[in-house]
Design a protein around this nucleic acid. Structure first.
Lengths: 208, 208
DNA sequence: AGTAACTTGTGAACAAATTCACAAGCCCCC
DNA sequence: GGGGGCTTGTGAATTTGTTCACAAGTTACT
């Protein structure tokens, strides 16, 4: 199977969101053009993205909203529960745990870890904060699917090594650190500093 | 001037971070290969990215850390102060305001807004939370450079329209909503749901 | 049944981004 | 001052991603 680009996967996410909205509004079909307009892309792009996984539409008519929705959910792997460790009992982790779409899409917080002895043992978003020292052992045991890192950058690589050794296959990293993982592990970085710098760049270098 | 790609700007951010680290360790020169290894790219890529703005290196030697650092800072527009409105006095906004790198890179919180009457008027990260209804008027007055949106998706587009009308030229959007802005405004989206879905996708579709 | 109005799916053309590969420059040491 | 060992800067080649453009399928209407 040919590899789809990362940007295409992002677009699938966007289409999914619109389809959810369309469904809740009771619409039954949607055209590539409508999806494109809402998502800021072109209809050809939408069709190419979808055609990668099969042909789900009807010529002359468009796509069936419920069908495309269920196909996309399946493609994106949203049919099942994903168990997530949140490492770093801070504000970002809390925001994530609170986020409606998190549970809605099948993500469950299976454990929260921190290093600070004053925090360990306290309740946090309905869970008891565990000691980060036990992370690897617990992970071997509970086999979470995803680790979310919201800790200071200095400790990030060590923690990643721990969870990777324990078998975690996907990491969402909020620490402003460049993490290295073996090729079988998927790593996504979300870096606010980088986004801000991107804005700073475009504010500085735009002689539109 | 030819346009540099968005991914190239992101890489510049990464190089910048490493250079800061190298400087603090007292290193005076660095090669494209060292930057590449740390940043997960190739030396050719590093050189191409930098050559876009001029030639800062010395053949046989590499790049001078302090010089490249100051050049990159200048390129990225980090020499000055950027005034930021945070819209939505929630956890993500607080995480951002707390983030060391935020101030360090010249970003200052110039105002915090919320809609909730119970929150308006209270102190939040050293500032008094203002009423989101006054947003447009205040923005016309204070002319912030950047607006960070950490509010529910339903209200996001309206708020964006307000700040754009008031002259804001850059928006960092954490709301899981597709926002539309005129072409002269730079918009960056950070969408946790999307990142998680990306992980879900790769966990599902990896027969490595 | 025929026609008009749509919309998909997809090769082919195009554009953008990345990698290759190598001449040219620099430093150090003998 | 010449040679060896590095490293940059950059056109050219390659790979990857996007857009075009159109045949083919579908529905609705007469």
């Amino acid at each position: 199977m040919k590899r789809i680009s990362e940007s295409a996967v992002r677009r699938l996410s966007i289409y999914l969101r619109f389809l959810e909205e369309f469904e809740s509004r009771g619409l039954t079909t949607v055209s590539s053009d409508e999806l494109a307009k809402r998502g800021g892309t072109t209809s050809a792009q939408v069709r190419k993205d979808l055609s990668f996984f099969g042909s789900f539409g009807k010529r002359g008519l468009g796509y069936s909203v419920p069908e495309l929705l269920s196909r996309l959910r399946e493609i994106m792997g949203l049919g099942r529960e994903w168990r997530v460790y949140i490492i770093g009992a801070g504000k970002i982790g809390a925001a994530l745990a609170h986020y409606r779409g998190f549970r809605q899409r099948g993500f469950t917080v299976a454990g929260v870890y921190d290093k600070d002895p004053r925090v360990i043992g306290t309740r946090w978003e309905g869970l008891v904060v565990r000691d980060i020292a036990d992370l690897e052992r617990d992970a071997r045991d509970e086999k979470p699917d995803i680790a979310v890192l919201t800790i200071p950058p200095e400790e990030a690589q060590k923690v990643v090594d721990d969870v990777v050794r324990a078998g975690v296959r996907a990491i969402l990293n909020f620490a402003p650190a460049q993490i290295h993982v073996p090729p079988e592990v998927t790593l996504k970085n979300v870096n606010m500093a980088m986004e801000l710098e991107g804005l700073s760049y475009s504010l500085t270098n735009s002689e539109s």
